[in-house]
């Protein structure tokens, strides 16, 4: 909690989206979404499959830029700065807003090299010793250090699924981001590995703003403080997780969390 960036001026939120719409070619995927993401919080995005959760998540670090047909409109700020303005360098943005994917995707390199990847690219370590330090600290924060400290030179792809996902979290942490985006990080994992990741999210939330997409409502209820419910490309309801799950304001939200559809 010590090295968290102080609250920015302006909105007062770590990230803010205002009137964001995304379309793939002619097809609109999300429409007019406005939301705020805060430090020290876990924000969960829930909603039926195909409602645009991933699409919206990917606008937050401009990963939609990698899809040729995607067009983003509206405004998204990080510490009050427009991340889609020409002044924003996407390399810097992604170093500040990291991402963990649905399917664990460690590089086919050693465990050490996986974690060292970001620091090397961004020139964060002046010496081998400093790099070793970053790798160890990141693996510790990801709760993986004790399991891999004796085999850092083994391939990252040889780990179990849950370990691979924690390695990917360590890889994201290694560049010291401010926000971490997670797109259904547990959907490919078994219940024990899932529990480990949830525990990890609890530990990390004091240090980073975390946004997690999940199709699992119990998970959203367990790990998050804020919840956003998406439906058919729209943000239906956004508020404190406790309120969303106990007293949803919208009929559609209530139908969804009581399992009426989705």
């Amino acid at each position: 909690m010590t090295d968290a960036t102080p609250f920015p001026t302006g909105t007062g939120h770590k990230m803010s989206a205002r009137g964001v719409s995304v379309s793939y070619g002619d097809k609109q995927a999300i429409r007019d979404v406005s939301i705020d993401v805060d430090m020290d919080h876990v924000t969960a995005f829930i909603g039926p499959s195909g409602c645009g959760k991933s699409t919206f998540l990917r606008t937050l670090n401009r990963m939609n830029d990698t899809i040729a047909s995607a067009r983003v409109t509206g405004e998204i700020t990080l510490d009050g700065e427009d991340i889609y303005s020409s002044a924003m360098d996407v390399v810097q943005l992604r170093a500040r807003v990291g991402m963990v994917f649905q399917k664990p995707n460690p590089f086919p390199k050693s465990i050490y090299e996986n974690v060292a990847y970001g620091p090397r690219i961004h020139g964060l370590a002046a010496s081998k010793g400093a790099l070793d330090g970053i790798v160890e600290q990141s693996l510790r924060r990801a709760g993986l250090w004790d399991e891999v400290k004796d085999r850092l030179s083994d391939s990252g792809t040889a780990l179990s699924g849950g370990q691979q996902q924690r390695l990917c979290i360590a890889r994201a942490i290694a560049v010291d981001p401010e926000v971490i985006l997670m797109d259904e990080p547990c959907s490919a994992l078994d219940p024990i590995a899932t529990a480990k990741i949830e525990e990890l999210i609890h530990e990390l939330k004091g240090r980073y703003a975390i946004v997690i997409v999940t199709h699992n409502m119990q998970q959203a209820a367990r790990v998050s403080q804020k919840t956003a419910f998406f439906h058919l490309g729209q943000l239906v309801e956004y508020g404190d997780t406790d309120n969303i799950f106990t007293a949803p304001k919208q009929e559609r939200t209530k139908d969804y969390i009581t399992g009426r559809y989705g």
Binding site: R94, A95, G118, I121
Partner: peptide, 18 residues
Amino acid sequence: VPTAMRDGSLAMGATNSE
């Protein structure tokens, strides 16, 4: 090579050539 590799690297802030 799975697109997930490419996305993983780009999401770390790596450029295309990196």
